[in-house]
């Protein structure tokens, strides 16, 4: 199974990235004249200049959203993984549904729910007389909500798969040996679940770093790196800067994932 995967990675990841390098290092003469960035100048702009804000924003929102998504999904994933109940399949399907929506669709959904004429403000008007939260889709809070919505299915499915592999007999054995609930939580559950939480966080984080459509539709002022790449390319034809941002996004996301992997190395994927 590794050969097709390697071919895919080479064609869809390595080659495009390599193609971006010359443009980022030495932008075409036209771009140099227009944007004043010579050799290496695009990197300076991406990592020391105007690119700093989008990178910071992307890291903060991706990390924040991923923490929220993991915490929100933990109870649901625990239920799905450790218990059997009626309508379990239906619940799983419903939770996975947003996975089929692209970011742009989630953005439109955000407008339908929290826009000026959104569903939630309309309901709140019925209840309170005031269209509370109207237009909140376009605020930072609305953006975070849409990102979280986008990440929930991924988080539930990843977490459930991980939790499923926890050996239930450890818990029972600990109880038999006289460990109390708190002791079991600290000594058994957390160490066992911790790698699963981290790996789920890593998946959600990477997806959020690359997400483009949600911010494209909803962000009024907030900018993230994928959006910045789009604006620089289509709005300013600045291929050098856009390429440098692309390479930076790839590097930052890979580094973050490497770090997270290292964090859980000691647990060594006990369920793996």
């Amino acid at each position: 199974m590794t050969a097709p995967l390697a071919a895919f990675l080479l064609a869809a990841f390595v080659l495009p990235l390599i193609r971006l390098v010359p443009a980022a290092v030495a932008p075409p003469a036209d771009a140099v004249a227009q944007h004043g960035a010579g050799v290496g100048g695009s990197f300076a702009r991406a990592f020391l200049g105007p690119g700093v804000e989008p990178f910071r924003n992307s890291l903060v929102i991706s990390a924040g959203v991923s923490v929220i998504a993991v915490l929100l999904c933990l109870p649901a994933a625990w239920m799905l993984a450790r218990h059997r109940f009626r309508l379990q399949g239906l619940l799983r399907t419903v939770l996975a549904l947003p996975l089929t929506f692209s970011g742009v669709i989630v953005g439109f959904l955000g407008i339908l729910v929290l826009g000026r004429l959104g569903l939630v403000p309309a309901l709140l008007r019925l209840l309170t007389g005031e269209p509370l939260l109207a237009g909140s889709a376009y605020t930072l809070g609305g953006l975070v909500a849409a990102y979280v919505y986008f990440e929930v299915p991924r988080a539930v499915l990843t977490l459930e798969a991980a939790l499923r592999r926890l050996p239930p007999e450890l818990d029972r054995a600990a109880a038999t040996l006289g460990a109390g609930a708190v002791q079991r939580l600290v000594r058994i559950h957390l160490p066992l679940v911790w790698p699963a939480l981290v790996s789920t966080f890593a998946v959600a984080f990477a997806a959020s770093m690359g997400s483009f459509g949600v911010a494209l539709i909803l962000a009024r002022r907030f900018t993230v790196v994928p959006l910045e790449i789009y604006t620089e390319f289509t709005g300013f034809l600045d291929t050098g800067y856009a390429s440098a941002l692309c390479l930076g996004l790839a590097a930052v996301t890979l580094a973050a994932n490497g770090l997270l992997r290292a964090l859980t190395k000691n647990g060594d994927w006990i369920y793996g």
Partner: peptide
Amino acid sequence: MRLDRTSWILPLAVIAVIAVIAAACGG
């Protein structure tokens, strides 16, 4: 399936898609 491997593939795929879009944007 080892989870650490899948946790690599998804970010790679996401970045790959962005890279492809940027490289061939509009094309």
